Simulated assay, not measured.
Amino acid sequence: MDIERWAWAGQERYPGFCLSFVRDREPAAVAAALGAGSTAVMTLAEAEQAHPISERGALLRLGDRGPWTFCFEDRAPIANRAPAIARLSQDTRLLQVTKSGDGMVIVRDVVDGRKVEMFEPGTAPRAGASLHPRIAALAGKHPAIVAALAVVGDEAGVDLDRDTLEGPLATAWSTLNEPAVRR
């Protein structure tokens, strides 16, 4: 695990976002589950020009590594909404890290709609937790968001650096409006 590859998450450029990892799903299927139409390969600069921040909706940046597809949303995330979580995890596993604009971090591990783990780093781990103690071990030395992403990324076998997120990725736009997650 290369925790430094996740250092971008603690920077001001990313005040809030949702990063989802979905096992055994193609990027187009993840985009469709989030209400987006077709994907097109774009750099971040091209995507931001095509979909300005003033436009209402979610910008989905997708890629795949081995059996996992990742989806990064840094404005108006929808993947962390209950109906989207159910769709994304149906018949598979969803790992997700959400950082809200106020800095709160939520980690989810969901298998076929069943919540395996959901926690905020810094809280006491529950018995049988897998990701939580691993994140807690790193959180003392690194920001909680960086520790959470490093552990979840390690679980999925995916490291994402800033160059990857800004480079060419499958990109889609969704205007899906779903209710917020209730905890």
Rank of each mutant, 00 (worst) to 15 (best):
M1V: 12
M1A: 15
D2R: 15
I3Q: 10
I3P: 14
I3Y: 02
E4Y: 10
A7S: 09
W8Q: 01
W8D: 05
W8V: 03
A9Q: 08
A9D: 00
G10R: 01
Q11M: 05
E12F: 00
Y14D: 07
P15R: 00
G16M: 06
S20R: 02
S20G: 07
F21M: 10
V22I: 09
E26R: 14
E26C: 08
P27L: 04
P27T: 03
A28W: 11
A29N: 11
A32L: 14
A32R: 15
A33F: 08
L34I: 04
A36M: 08
A36I: 11
A36Q: 03
G37S: 08
G37Q: 03
T39V: 12
T39E: 12
A40K: 13
V41F: 11
V41E: 15
E46K: 03
E48F: 00
Q49T: 13
A50Q: 13
H51K: 08
P52T: 02
P52L: 02
G63D: 00
R65H: 15
G66P: 09
G66S: 07
P67A: 13
F70I: 05
C71M: 06
E73L: 05
D74S: 11
D74E: 10
D74N: 14
R75I: 04
I78H: 00
A84G: 06
R87N: 09
L88F: 06
L88V: 03
Q90A: 14
T92G: 04
L94G: 04
L95N: 00
Q96L: 15
G101N: 09
G101V: 02
G101C: 04
D102F: 08
M104L: 13
D109S: 12
V110Q: 02
D112P: 04
G113H: 04
V116C: 04
E117F: 04
E117C: 07
M118N: 12
P121R: 05
G122H: 04
T123F: 10
A127N: 14
A127R: 14
H132G: 07
P133G: 07
A136C: 06
A137W: 01
A139Q: 05
K141R: 14
P143S: 06
A144R: 14
V146T: 04
A147Q: 00
A148N: 02
A150W: 06
A156N: 05
G157Q: 01
D163I: 11
T164D: 12
L165Q: 03
L169D: 09
A170P: 12
T171V: 10
T171C: 11
A172L: 01
W173K: 08
W173C: 05
T175C: 11
E178S: 13
E178D: 12
P179S: 09
V181M: 15
V181E: 13
R182W: 13
R183I: 06
